[in-house]
Nucleic acid binder design. Sequence first.
DNA 1: ACCTTGACGGTTC
DNA 2: GGAACCGCCAAGG
Length: 124
Amino acid sequence: MLKSQKPAVNPNYQRIWQTVQAIPYSKVACYGQIADLAGLPGKARLVGKALGKVPEEGWQGQQVPWYRVINSQGKISFPLESEFFARQRDLLQDEQVVVIGNRIKLKNFQWLPDLAELLFKLDY
DNA sequence: ACCTTGACGGTTC
DNA sequence: GGAACCGCCAAGG
């Protein structure tokens, strides 16, 4: 049998993308929160890396709503003047998420999944 | 094996 | 709220 075909996609990235897919419409989650839910506690920065490599065509037939992930301070983690910042802000506002001066009130929009929701959406 | 990179987070002032 | 600082650690070169 042939050894190591292609290094396949990093399994940690896959779990992160899958977890991000569970964030509901009009809700946001923090990098650290996603890391925890993905079973990678303390690896918030890894989530950032993984999101930077999200396949444009989605993962396993489903889009990955990368724009629903913001930092723990309720802010978009891109430079204000960048094109990425504008895109993320627009996509969020399209979902009725209120963004004022690079600030989103986590109190109102943070995704707080209950156990049943997690068991249903994440299969591991 | 060593070094740098990150879409981070918490602490403190 | 915000800026400075420091700790964190897998990935990729």
